[in-house]
Design a protein around this nucleic acid. Structure first.
Lengths: 216, 216
DNA sequence: TAGATTGTTAATCGATTAACAATC
DNA sequence: TAGATTGTTAATCGATTAACAATC
């Protein structure tokens, strides 16, 4: 329990390292130095070494890092070394897009249920999954082991559903609704937000920067 | 041209301010102090004042901020005070989800074209938009004023399409493909990435933290 | 062994918070 | 005017980068 807390800045970067290592693997590269990886990824070699060392000495002096084993280690840190079941609440196009995304499975994420409150959507199939009525969610959670719930529903419905999920043992929410669920739920719940409209606004902000910069 | 560069940390926070101000407007709140907003948003009042002052003195001593006018000002900074045309490349479920998202229109974003290379999708309608064959994209860009392109296509196709877009005058890319387009394109192109699988990995990382924390 | 490259400590840089004078 | 709250400067904190000794 040495609990040396890892900053979220570091965690943010891990998936990107993982992606580049994956590419290196595909290219058949066996070993890589922080300097070479630095060149590819456009981050400093220092940062790479610093980041990785939070989790252990994965490298070897004079050699660098073994691509295969580093890939595996980061995978472990990301929790990709085991299967994790996921449900999707909201069977609209976004929910379907997630359910349909093949790559997730490769990473150990299994969509085992999709739920919606709209009767018109219930019964539709997305890959191997049939959209179920949201009223059956609680019963489903009691009889299945679910780690993660994705919320692809409107913001007004998100809080209520989130509470139901949490009350039934879900610890991780992938939140696409425009609410700050972290302010509404117990602290121990892990939340990752994807706020698409805010992302688009950021893009627009950067694009329009010149307009207000010249004003001042 | 005083070009006092604004840090991306600040820009990251603007859409959230905007969202909270929107809520306050709906609640009919007329004015708000940084202290009160601080309580609601769970950030320091100091940060709020600091952030806003990058763009000008929107507040008034002894009074606070006028919700309506601050909302409008931030909207301007985010580029929401005018219409911006957008095309979506990739007519799959994710592309359709974006095209279908009503809220964007409220913010001035207009989806005026969706393109796909899959003939089965071509001709399908999403709201007022018909999916067109991607071969017609270049011609379309010549005859329409487009500010933003969303890329909801597989990573292998992203680079080529991005180049075509850039060569035809697009300056802003909303990138859902798992490539770092910024490393492949000219520096002046504005890019906002939404890497869904990396977002999911982050969630998983936080959820599985305990496993590797106890090991050390 | 000599060369290369890590792990780790120290220095720098930037962002966040605190404090307070200015002012509505 | 007195009270409240901003705008802004100064202090603190944390994250990034540089440097180098340890070591494969």
């Amino acid at each position: 329990m040495a609990q040396k807390e890892i900053s979220s800045a570091v965690i943010e970067r891990l998936p990107r390292y993982y992606r580049y290592l994956d590419e290196l693997l595909e290219e058949g590269v066996e070993r890589i130095s922080s300097a070479e990886l630095s060149r590819r990824m456009q981050v400093t070699a220092s940062q790479i070494r610093q980041d990785l060392n939070h989790f252990g000495g994965f490298g070897q002096q004079g050699y660098g890092y073994n691509v295969q084993s580093l890939y595996k280690e980061i995978g472990k840190i990301l929790g990709l070394d085991r299967a994790q079941n996921m449900v999707i609440i909201g069977g609209g196009r976004l929910g379907q897009a997630l359910a349909n995304y093949v790559r997730f499975e490769k990473r150990g994420f299994r969509v085992i249920g999709i739920f919606d409150r709209n009767p018109d959507l219930v019964g539709n199939r997305v890959r191997q999954c049939e959209i179920q009525y949201v009223g059956q969610l609680e019963q489903f959670l009691r009889t299945h082991e679910v780690e993660i719930a994705a919320l692809t529903i409107p913001r007004d419905e998100a809080e209520e559903v989130a509470r139901l999920l949490v009350n039934n043992g879900i610890h991780a929410l992938w939140n696409f609704a425009h609410v700050d669920l972290d302010l509404l739920l117990p602290e121990n719940i892990v939340i990752e937000n994807v706020h698409l409209s805010e992302s688009l606004m950021k893009l627009s902000c950067k694009l329009n920067k010149d307009r207000w910069l010249s004003e001042e």
